[in-house]
Design a protein around this nucleic acid. Structure first.
Lengths: 232, 232
DNA sequence: CTTGACACAGAACAGACGTTCGAGTATCAT
DNA sequence: ATGATACTCGAACGTCTGTTCTGTGTCAAG
């Protein structure tokens, strides 16, 4: 009767979760109840337990009782705070092919907790400096239509959502008039856009500024797994 | 006069280190002394401490005394046991360019503990199934000579050491007669080797079996970071 | 045979740690 | 005012956990 039913998370709960996350990342082990209390400014161990009980009931932590430091954050906390991990799970939204429209990130959907979607795990250190990794998504290349972007069938393209780009950035664009998706280096010129293939031996496409061109995202990384040998 | 025997690591030490590693990976926290003793078949906590003290003196673990479960494996243990991590540190041995010989993995050198070399961190889940990651190394592509392998200047190529290959595998080969390093799909035919570019629009190279051809490794993965925009 | 380093066991102890309980305060709807 | 709810405190308790101490058996050197 002393535990709230379904009220929301308070500032204190978040403080506790953040400290749990921080301590674990820093020390490689969970903190003790007294260590939590000290950091979250709770002077009684019973109050810390009080909050831990609530957090456990809410599904944000799991506990192995009777064992010291037996606390563990669950997947669910990522909905509340940014969990520091070395690995970043990036959802694979779908295929990218020349003739089909690009899958897009729908706001408000948490792909990481949705086990339906596949994902690639990328080391944070592999990402461009200080790229937080927020909202990154990945596409799997289907077909040979991206060869001029130096991208093969089966490659994984990691994207950052964007609707505009600066010169020299590689973007995924949808060309409504051609009904075509493509990956190109983007350059804005006088009265046109130049879409430059990555392959230096190939020629650019020019799109007049009056013509439609939808930038869907910037390419952050391309990953090619040589899993199975080439046939033929 | 009192030089005792080996003085090195014993089977028990390794058992302890392995359990430390296993428990940490499984529970996200270090084990207690009694948990160690139970698993390593030591019936007294004092003996566990006895070994922990030795391991600490040898530099394989660090301890935060007075605090429960205050044990942590150090970098050095990777010389002794295979530390299970989600991340794999793969050393970048050097550049790969058409005109220069390929850097090679020197046996007996632990590149991971040698801070001199750069490294890329790859999530284990990203590697081909059950690729242990042993002896993997990486090369950084310099120049545009690998464009026919769909590989750009600046790309990171993750390699597995190999001196021969099966049909359809992409290999790094050194062609002594041409004084050239290249990445191609490898096919053995009647009396020749066919080196097939990844780019389907390009033609293969044929090498007679009588001519020299040194396979240096198989390509496991290619990573392209789109860090900076393309100039021009 | 004696000595001493080494590997190990068991008991005991002190402090760390999680849990329980009694009690107090503040807010809010009744 | 009343009571229910949410939150906090402090003390006490028992277990967990790391440390210390005493003792035993082995083995090689002196």
């Amino acid at each position: 009767m002393m535990v709230r039913k379904s009220k929301g998370i308070t500032e204190k709960h978040i403080k506790v979760l953040e400290f749990l996350n921080e301590y674990q990342a820093q020390h490689g082990r969970p903190p003790s109840i007294r260590e939590i209390g000290e950091k979250v400014k709770i002077s009684s161990t019973s109050v810390v337990k009080y909050y831990l009980d609530q957090l456990e009931r809410m599904g944000y932590i799991e506990r192995n009782n009777r064992i010291s430091r037996g606390v563990r954050l669950t997947e669910k906390v990522s909905e509340i705070i940014e969990v520091t991990t070395d690995l970043l799970r990036i959802p694979i939204l779908g295929p990218i092919a020349a003739g089909s429209p690009l899958p897009e990130l729908e706001p408000g959907v948490n792909y990481l907790t949705d086990n339906q979607v596949e994902a690639v795990e990328i080391a944070r250190s592999l990402l461009p400096a200080r790229e937080k990794g927020e909202n990154l998504y990945a596409l799997e290349v289907k077909g040979d239509s991206m060869v001029d972007a130096m991208i093969n069938d089966g490659d994984i393209v990691v994207m950052k959502p964007a609707s505009e780009a600066r010169n020299g950035e590689m973007v995924a664009v949808w060309l409504p008039q051609n009904n075509e998706a493509t990956l190109k280096y983007f350059f804005k010129e006088k009265d046109r856009y130049r879409l430059q293939p990555a392959n230096p031996t190939m020629k650019p496409i020019y799109i007049k500024k009056t013509e439609p061109l939808e930038i869907k995202g910037k390419v952050v990384m391309v990953i090619r797994k040589m899993e199975k040998p080439l046939a033929a």
